[in-house]
Each structure stands twice: as C-alpha cells, then as structure tokens.
Amino acid sequence: MKLTKDKVRLGQDKVKHVAKLANLPLSSEEEEKYPEQLSKILEYVEQLNKVDTSNVEPTFNVSGQSNVVRVDKVGECLNQEEALSNAPKKENARLQTPERSDGGQGFFVTKGVFAE
C-alpha cells in the first residue's frame, strides 16, 4: 500500500539530510526506497501519541542501579600493538584516516584548526 503524500514523514530531501547526519552513504536505490519504508514505520510508531503520558516520568534505564562508580585506579591497558592491530591504515604508531574535504559524506565537513 502506497502512503498518501501527507503521510510521508521523510521525503527524499529529508532522507538525504538524515543520511548526512548519520554519516551514511546511501545508494540511489536506497534514497528512492527509504521515504516510503521509513515513513510507514514512523506512522506506525506515532500511535504512541494516543497514550496519555502527561504525568509520567520517562524510563531510560531499567537496571534499577544508581551511583555506580569505581575508584580512581590505573588498571591494565592494551599495548600499542594490540591497539593498532585491527587498523586498516596506520603510520608512526598512529591510526590514519584519509582527509576528505569535499563537504560530502566524509568526516571533514569543516576543517578545524589544531594549533599545537
């Protein structure tokens, strides 16, 4: 069943915007498919609005715990080799990421100044 236009929560522009926020590359096929698929799910979850929660405190955590802290003591770390063992690219014991300043899907939407 196709959603009527007013029920589309996420239009294609919004899908692209959200994908950018999520740093998620989408294929054109996905960009095509997601507005409908995701809007359907959003429409479903919006039935939450039927529940009166005006006097309800939200529950974020069900462990029933509070104030779980540890003493400030140094423990075992990974050694350098272990820390780097899964990194696809590295140089001088540092992990490497290719810089992408295209403002697109990459990390570097903006370049900061990191004066030493």
Binding site: R9, L10, K14, V15, V18, A19, L21, A22, L24, L26, E30, Y34, Q37, L38, I41, L42
Partner: peptide
C-alpha cells in the same frame, strides 16, 4: 541496519 540508523538519526534529530 541502515534502515534503523536512518530512523534513529531522524527521531533523535
């Protein structure tokens, strides 16, 4: 996984 990332990113935005 992509679908859920999209949904979650949207609902937290």
């Amino acid at each position: 996984v992509k679908r859920r990332i999209m949904l979650g990113t949207y609902s937290l935005s």
